[in-house]
Design a binder for these strands. Structure first.
Lengths: 111, 111
DNA sequence: CAAAATACATAGTATAACAATGTATTATTA
DNA sequence: TAATAATACATTGTTATACTATGTATTTTG
């Protein structure tokens, strides 16, 4: 029943949304990429493709909303941890305002 | 304070969202384009550019989620009214399920 | 009578998600 | 112990959609 349409739509809905998710999650904890994706998959209904995540993080770093640092492991591949910057925190606050407005608007018309 | 970033982000967030808005609004009433844009602007925090709306409606018609009919006016330019099809109604139901999941997920991580 | 509002529409641009693919290390399991 | 899965980061190319700018035409308003 129009599965292709719905699938494509879900992918479109994620645009922008994933940025909002990332900044929100980093507000409370530092995460490295692989962990982040797994955590979000477990705790929410949101599935982030790796091919989406890494370019997204590089965009956010370029915009200086997040910074990153490599952390060597006793064994295994080093992990790149992401941290929310002050600019990131301020930007997130503005985004939260719009998100709130938008959710409220949609709740209004979808009830 | 990063206004350009936030502005671009808002535009990204609308991707997919506008489809959801359109189908939801048409669930209860028929509308013509100009009226639709004005109504949504008045009642919600959502601003839809005309250059977004008309191509969007043509996509939805192609997918057979909506149909349209021209209605002549006693005076003035004829109006093209949009109507939700049965396929549109069924597709919307599936979208509502995902939207609910997504909002819940984001509420969880943004609190 | 000029400007604003109404009403539909398209072309070109920018952006972001995703699949596919790649590299490398470590843990599991058969 | 050899193959496979899981961990961990990353890029390239494709596709889809929102927006600006622009265009046409009619009607209302100042």
């Amino acid at each position: 029943m129009n599965e292709i349409f719905v699938t494509k739509w879900k992918s479109q809905v994620k645009k922008g949304t994933l940025t909002f998710v990332v900044l929100n999650v980093l507000r409370e904890n530092e995460f490295y990429g692989y962990e982040f994706i797994e955590e979000v998959k477990k705790k929410t209904a949101i599935d982030i493709a790796e091919g989406t995540f890494y370019p997204l993080m590089n965009r956010l770093k370029k915009e200086e909303l997040v910074s990153s640092k490599w952390v060597e492991q006793e064994s295994g591949i080093p992990r790149k941890y992401y941290v929310l910057t002050d600019t990131g925190k301020k930007t997130l606050k503005q985004m939260q305002i719009y998100w709130e407005e938008l959710s409220t608007s949609i709740k209004k018309i979808s009830k």
